[in-house]
Amino acid sequence: MWTHILTVGLLFSVFLMAASKRLGALIRAFRFQSLMLALLTASFARHSDDLELWVITVMILFIKVWLIPRHLEKITAEMSSGENMGLVLNPPMSVIIVTVFGWLIYSFSDSVIGGMSGDARLNFSISFLTIFTGFFLMVFRLKALAQIIGLLVMENGVFMLASSISDGMPFIVEIAVFFDLFVLVVVAGIFVYRIKGLFTHIDVSRLTRLKG
């Protein structure tokens, strides 16, 4: 039962992200999502009594719930470019699109991987929806930070996919992916600073000097 609640919580976080107008809200939604993910992993760890899964739960809590959002909030504050993310599609429209896509993913998930149990199919669909939402954020939000968060959301979705269909990946791979994610955020963060310094804005849709 708890897993169901947590899964619904994840789904809710996805809609929260689609509906967010400001970076602060987005980061908070990301925190919430990562928390749901950590709790889900914890419940898997309890069922299978696997030490590695506990380690991963702790890592999610540390890196995705605390470290990365804090880093992002720090950057957002220093950017002082207005909290607005720059929306190409307004929040209601975004939510509608995410909903429609969620429904599409659910209906086609059977043809993609046949014979999944109801639970598994739900988890599978939600993880793909999370991936899609991350992608959506990257394409339809104009600020650089939103693109970073979009990437992180995609990675969350991938993690969820791994845990739902194959009980996660080999431990060493999970650790390496975490580490990699962290470096990515640091690197991308440095670049956001540089963009702000050179362009005095972080609206990536205006970065169009290189064309053709």
């Binding site: 791994a162 992916v177 310094g197 050179l198 970065l207």
Partner: peptide, 29 residues
């Protein structure tokens, strides 16, 4: 640190990372 270089680097990081997330999905599958 010229405008064009930073623009290029940003596009490089973002687009390649998106691609790699898709690749990771493939690995998981």
């Amino acid at each position: 640190t010229t405008k064009k270089a930073i623009e290029a680097a940003w596009k490089y990081v973002i687009i390649c990372s998106v691609g790699l997330v898709l690749a990771l999905i493939g690995v998981i599958l």
